[in-house]
Structure formats: C-alpha cells, structure tokens
Design a protein around this nucleic acid. Structure first.
Lengths: 199, 199
DNA sequence: CGGTTCCTTGAGGATGATCAACGAGGGTGG
DNA sequence: CCACCCTCGTTGATCATCCTCAAGGAACCG
C-alpha cells in the first residue's frame, strides 16, 4: 500500500528508528496497529518446531505489513523482524480504522493491494510447491526482481540476500541453495561474481 | 464472500447449471466476470509441466472465486474446474464494478474476505512448506474441517475427497498420501472406516 | 457381469537433508 | 598493521524419505 506519511503523522502515527534484527511483533500476539516502512526492510516469518525459520514475505520501503490480522481482529500468524536498520511508522488500530472511514480511497487501495498479494501468492506457490529446488529459487528471484525493477527489465540485478535467507524463503537448506545456484550459474540462468549473486 | 443472489440477478447476473469436471475459466485467460457458487464446488488449480496437477484452493456453496484477477485486470493464474455438478452465477466485469460502486458494503466485505484468505494462506503455507507429509495432510484436513464445521467441533467428519485429490492439494503423490494416512490412522490421528476417511 | 475409478502394496531409485569440516572476507581492537 | 573473530559461503559423504514404476484388489454403477 503506501499511505502518505504526513497523513499518517497527522492522524497520530508515530515513527520509530529500529535496529536490524529487531522483532516488531510476535506470532500469536494480538494485532495492535498499522505498520508502514519509511525506510529499511522487514520479513514476516515462522519458527519451525525444530528451530528452522520459514520466511513468509519480504517488505520494503513504502510497504505496509501485517494488515490482514488487523482487519480481522486476529492474532498475528507470523513474527515480523527488521532485516536492516529501519524507520517504521505505526498507527494504532483505532486510529487506522477511523482513517479508513474518513478516506474511502484507502480502503480501495487496500483492496487492490490484497488482491495483488493473493495473486502473487498464487503465482509463487506454484513454483514453490513440490517442484525442483531450481524452480523454487527461480520463483523467489523473479518475484524479487519484479518487485524491485518493475515488470520487464532484463539487465541482471544484484540479489541482496544471503544463501541462508534464500533458503529460509524457499524452504530449502543452505547447502541445497548453494549447490543449485552453482548449477544455475553454469547454465547461465544466474551469475555469481565474487560470491555475489546476480539475476 | 457471498453477495445476495437476488441482488446479483437484479444486476444482470446469470445462473448456469454446470456438470462435474467442467472448466469455468482457464489459466492465462483474461478475467471476464465475477463468479459465485449457488450450489456445488469448484477447485482452482495449475497443471504442472509434467502433467501433474496442483490444487490452489477449494470453493463451496456461497463462495465466490477468481476475484483478485478481476479487480486487478490481470490474467487468471489458475484454471477453475467444477468438482461436482454445480450451479454458478456470473456477473460481467462491468456490472460487478458498478455493483461495488453502488454498495460500498460489498467492498468492505470483499476486503475482509481477502484479509481472511491471506490470513488462512499464511497459516496453511506453514504446514505445507517443506515439512513432513503428515503435517501437510493435517494442514489440509484441519483447514477443511474448520471451513465446514466452524472453528471448534471435535467430532470427526467425513472427508469427501479422494486420496488423489488430497495428493493434488498437498503436493504429495497418491501413494505417499495413502501410506501416511495409514500411519496416521494407526496413531488415531484420523479414522479410516471402509476406505472412508474421517477427521 | 464388465468397465471404471479409486485404493493399496512392494521394490527400487533419485534427491534433498543432515552432519562435519573448512575457507573467505570484513570488521575490530590491540 | 596484524591477529582475532564472526558471519557467510563451500564441499564431501552419508542417510532418510518421498517419488516412480508396476501390479493388482475393492467398490461402485451401468
């Protein structure tokens, strides 16, 4: 989404600097407010029983996150953690609901945003479920590139994630990610220069 | 969701009887209209390159489906197929958008529906990604039961799906589903009576 | 009955996970 | 400037598990 920051502040939104790897909310907590990223990045994730982490979604500058439980008055199904030093703006649940009443266009935007999330999830779940490690990774890479560069830019971009982060997102193990990326670079599907990954 | 059927008809919705296993729309087609199930059931699915099917979602009486691409003016990411003889009601894109303008409450409902879909997807993706066959199947069963019976009913219900359908939904193979269900029934996590599955 | 669909079982193979090291690079403090 | 540490990347060997392939059995329906 992206509500204008001035509007958020006018309505009582509070900005906050947050260090890397800070937890914003925990899985199982009640949804307390609307969060939007002024700068930085956030991941939503679950911790598996065996301590392995699975990343459900990535969010960057301008993105909001954690709205569905807020609207449903549900508990958060994920934990939110900053991936870099970030500045977030938070608006309390009550104020957010008032704001939506006041500006129906926000509701419309949110509807489109949700539609897009469902749509993207559907596209991605396809590459993630039960298919080869390669197509899982490709799904992740193309999704990231699409979001970053817009739809059709063919020049490779640097993928700013560690192998471990890619593993967490694809549900694979680090070693598998490494070996698969190696194969993919041999086939020129990705480039690896100095251990940096380009796609 | 669930828009009142009389309202849909008043606005130009057309009901249609459809036999089992009929394709309502194909993956890659433009979204042409709003669909709601009067009776029967529908699945959204993808066909893998190797001919294997993956089921993305199940929809039953009263449910609408395929709205996100409609709102985004996108192509359908899935194919929709009836799972039983069904009666569907369809409203053209233009009329649906007009209807939404006229009744803001529909927009609100849709927003909540989308929020719920995202929320449920998030809960489920957790049990589906990279975990054991058992937890995948459990995820499927509990989701189905929750939708059918409401939240907390402990009495087992008949699961009206074939092993193959469960396999398509969980991304497993039929044989794995069968063997896993057998193990689960030995542990009393499910009941199998006369090849019928209860949970 | 005969056909169709679904369920079941067994054997074998492929592949990703696991475990255990080690290497490379970047930052920090002495 | 060097030694150390810490994170991240990499490699190899072994293992567990799910998929694959093949065959047959049970239930249902005309």
């Amino acid at each position: 989404m992206q509500i204008d920051i001035d509007v958020l502040i006018t309505w009582g939104g509070i900005t906050k600097k947050v260090a890397k790897d800070t937890t914003i909310f925990f899985e199982g907590e009640e949804a307390r407010g609307y969060y939007q990223i002024v700068s930085g990045s956030v991941r939503l994730c679950n911790e598996n029983s065996d301590g392995k982490e699975f990343t459900q979604g990535l969010f960057f500058e301008g993105d909001s996150f954690g709205e569905p439980p807020l609207i449903l008055s549900e508990l958060y199904p994920c934990t939110a953690i900053t991936m870099t030093d970030s500045v977030l703006i938070k608006l309390s649940r009550e104020k957010f609901l008032l704001l939506m009443e006041e500006y129906p266009s926000i509701e419309k935007d949110l509807l489109k945003l949700f539609a897009l999330r469902i749509y993207n999830k559907s596209v991605n779940i396809r590459s993630m479920m039960n298919t080869s490690p390669e197509s899982r990774i490709m799904g992740f890479l193309s999704q990231y590139k699409k979001r970053t560069k817009g739809s059709n830019n063919n020049s490779p971009i640097l993928i700013p994630f560690t192998r471990q982060q890619i593993a967490n997102f694809t549900g694979l193990r680090v070693e598998t990610v490494i070996r698969t990326l190696l194969k993919m670079s041999e086939l020129n599907k990705v480039n690896i220069i100095n251990r940096k990954l380009f796609y």
